[in-house]
Simulated assay, not measured.
Amino acid sequence: MLSQRTRYTIRALQHLARHYGEGPIHLTDIATAQNIPGKFLTVILSELSRAGLVATMRGRDGGYWLALPPVDIRYGDILRLTNGALALVPCASRYAHEHCKNCVPEEECELRRIMIKVRDETAAILDRLTLADRFDAGPDEAEPESALVSQ
């Protein structure tokens, strides 16, 4: 399950993607439009700035904008940045691997083999989708419609 922090991060980045190329957007505008507490959003945007996904400028005409084109920001990268790992169990994680407590040895664990497949499929989907993809269709339609992004 995605944490609230991850959901806020995605919504903030989606907002910035929709306004890509329009110049800096004030924090309060993002917070209001996305219903994100301002203090929490400040922390999130600061982390995104350090990660190189968001740029910022101080002052009256300042604000935040995407540091990269939306097509270059993948959902997989966002989740790895905020959640740390895509795997559902620690023993299936590629980057944050840990042995599971109270489990059988990894080479004997059938659940681990299944979870590695789930991790790989999830990663493939999330690494294919970018902030440039729009999901205006209903939830039953799997394919995103690529949006035209002004530059």
Rank of each mutant, 00 (worst) to 15 (best):
D136V: 14
C100R: 14
S49A: 10
L86F: 10
Y95S: 07
L53Q: 00
T56E: 01
H15M: 01
L13G: 09
L53E: 00
A124L: 07
I10Q: 08
N102E: 15
C91I: 08
L41T: 12
A92C: 00
P70M: 10
P90Y: 06
S93I: 05
D120N: 07
N102Y: 15
G52F: 04
G62T: 10
C100F: 06
Q34A: 00
N35M: 12
G76H: 00
T42H: 10
R112G: 07
D29P: 07
I125Q: 15
A96I: 14
R94S: 03
E22I: 08
L79Q: 02
V43G: 03
S3N: 06
G62I: 13
L13A: 06
R113M: 08
T32H: 07
A12M: 01
P144I: 03
E121M: 10
I30R: 00
V54L: 03
Y95D: 15
L66F: 11
Y95C: 13
A147F: 15
H15F: 02
E121W: 15
L53K: 02
A87T: 04
R134E: 14
R60N: 06
C100Q: 06
D77T: 03
L126I: 14
L79K: 02
Q14I: 05
D136A: 15
G76K: 04
I125H: 11
L41S: 13
L53V: 01
A142F: 14
V149M: 13
D77V: 04
N102S: 14
R11W: 03
L148Q: 15
R18L: 05
P139V: 10
H99W: 10
E110H: 09
I30C: 01
E98Y: 15
R11M: 04
L86C: 05
H99D: 15
G38Q: 08
L81D: 01
P69C: 14
H26E: 05
G62Y: 06
A96K: 14
L88S: 12
Q14D: 15
R7M: 11
D140E: 14
E121Q: 12
H97E: 10
T42R: 08
V89Y: 14
N35F: 11
G23C: 04
A17S: 11
E47Q: 06
